[in-house]
């Protein structure tokens, strides 16, 4: 069961294709990171999923409903936090929460109180007088307090300092620790995201490049270091296409294997570099991201 599923989803702005034939799926209960460089189409995709803009083609289903028909009932099951979303800034934090509460029958006042304390939000201060970080925390609180089935976060960490990010993520953990939550988060902050996501969708230039679990992704990507027995020049085109980012310094050769198979036990490396000493280590999500970004630009 997927909470989000798109089929050939497309959106154009004039002559520019912002999203092209996107086939994305987010399994229920997963925490999915939507990664991609600036202008890749992340926010446009999320806006289509939230029925804020209409797709130019294709289809998206969110919680089993066509995104274009996403109504009040479905929106009561979705939490949405976006850096671009306008908030009623004239309201105090308290008034804002009171205002939001009425929309959601499932609003959990205990959770609200807990998060209010966790985020240390000043209840009587108006939103316009809050820092950016505080504002995002208030938005997250208002999105978590009714325990939505699906939480959509669009660049939530953008412009936040590390302490606020920590608060933000802890609050997220605290709220989503119990119950079945599905989260879709688009972000540039890969290190932060890596701490809690289990599914990765990478889009670039409006196209989906990768969509798989973090576990599988990390198992598939390996940084390989080879110490050659003899001095020889290795050329990239001589290597399998899945071996990327070749670097050589004397006898030391480094590359990234994007299709590593653990069961293979390094047989392919040994065949290609006979007699060489080899190590293959895991990559951080950041390195995987950078590798994929480079791959798609080639």
């Amino acid at each position: 069961m997927n909470v989000i599923e798109t089929q050939e989803l497309r959106r154009t702005f004039g002559s520019k294709d912002a999203v092209r034939s996107l086939d994305l799926r987010v399994p229920a209960g997963s925490v999915c990171a939507l990664l991609g460089p600036n202008g890749a189409g992340k926010t446009t995709t999320i806006k289509m999923l939230m029925n804020l803009i209409r797709p130019s083609g294709g289809q998206a289903r969110v919680l089993g409903v066509d995104s274009r028909r996403l109504g009040a009932v479905e929106k009561a099951r979705i939490g949405y936090v976006s850096e671009n979303h306008e908030m009623p800034e004239w309201m105090t934090v308290r008034a804002f929460l009171d205002y939001c509460r009425e929309f959601y029958p499932t609003w959990d006042r205990e959770l609200e109180a807990k998060l209010l304390t966790r985020f240390a939000l000043p209840e009587e201060r108006s939103l316009k007088h809050l820092s950016r970080g505080m504002k995002m925390k208030a938005a997250l609180l208002a999105a978590l307090a009714y325990r939505p089935e699906l939480l959509v976060l669009d660049e939530p960490f953008s412009g936040l300092d590390p302490a606020v990010r920590e608060d933000f993520v802890r609050g997220l953990f605290e709220a989503t620790g119990d119950g079945e939550w599905s989260i879709l988060v688009s972000s540039h902050d890969i290190d932060e995201v890596e701490r809690f996501v289990d599914w990765i969708a990478f889009i670039d230039d409006g196209r989906l490049v990768i969509s798989e679990s973090l576990e599988s992704l990390q198992a598939r990507f390996r940084r390989v270091e080879v110490t050659l027995a003899d001095q020889m020049m290795i050329r990239a085109e001589e290597l399998p296409p899945a071996w990327r980012d070749l670097q050589q310094s004397g006898k030391l050769v480094r590359f990234i294997d994007t299709a590593h198979m653990e069961a293979d036990g390094g047989r392919l490396y040994a065949e290609r570099f006979p007699g060489a000493a080899m190590t293959a280590g895991p990559l951080s999500l950041r390195d995987i991201y950078l590798t994929v970004a480079r791959m798609t630009r080639v």
Binding site: I53, M87, C100
Partner: peptide, 16 residues
Amino acid sequence: LKEAAFWRSRPITGRQ
């Protein structure tokens, strides 16, 4: 018509 309007992501219909 504003995509970023707060109410657009809340459970309230346009008619309401």
